[in-house]
Amino acid sequence: MTHDKEKLVEMYTKMLEIRFFEEKVYELYGQNLVPGTIHLYAGEEAVAVGVCSALSREDYIVSTHRGHGHCIAKGADLKKTMAEILGKKTGYCKGKGGSMHIADFNIGMLGATAVVGAGVPIASGAGLSIKLRGTDQVCACFFGDGASNQGTFHEGINLAATWALPVLFVCENNLYAMGTRQSQVMLIENVAERASAYGIPGVTVDGNDVLAVYEVAEEAVKRARVGKGPTLIECKTYRHKGHSRVDPATYRPKEEVAEWLKKDPIIRFREQLFKMHVLTEEEAKEIESKVTVAINAAVKFALESPYPEPEEALEDVYA
């Protein structure tokens, strides 16, 4: 476990950034300022932050429809992220992508695909490129429990396993794919068990414990960097809200929701940091106000930014 104070505080700050960011997105959506739909990451912060804290800036990630947290954890600019979600010209993708398709190639964020499971082979391909180019990068691929029933999951992991590609396959198991409970669509309890079918390590970890996720990710990164191939990491977690903004999530038992809210990854980490004497109540408050200021600045920037000109729709089709 890392005891580097600076790193721990940075991880905590990132988690808070994601939570506050998502709360703002939720609020703005309610005010009709966010076009389309949104899939919030609130409740799952420990996964993205735990994994991305084990990566360097040069490493890659591949993201999903529930991707705001992945971006922020990898170090994306809050302003450009928020502007993209609002469909503004100043957003990461000039308004072409929106909430489900954010990318920042400068920080190795290879983009979010909204086609469930489509990121898995793409991550394997990035891993292949790393191997062929002979760098020591790795690629972390985020996807859900639902995605692990897609053919691309099996094909993509098998390829990465066979070719010993430097990839972390990170399954964010939040127990549901829309309204479908995991147990309705697979007989195993742990998605990580599937790793054995491809001859690679599979680890199930408490996805609401950021340090536990970090440790597992660090180990997997080590393996990957020395050419030992991919790892399948399953993080058990829970989304605080419905699947998308309009989903009241009535298919989830109240007791289950309450149980998981008690395991809030941010509250848990803060308690841990207090106990470890890494953080005081005072410092925690300071971080909160700092993050609030940053999020508010992102919102202001996004709201004040112009929409793209209609004709820009015709640009970027070909290189």
């Binding site: 076009p35 389309g36 469909g87 503004k88 993708c93 308004g95 072409k96 992508g97 929106g98 398709h101 929409y307 793209p308 000109e309 209609p310 820009e312 729709a313 015709l314 089709v317």
Partner: peptide, 9 residues
Amino acid sequence: TPIPFSPPL
């Protein structure tokens, strides 16, 4: 073109 996200596009 692919279908862009932002309303004016």
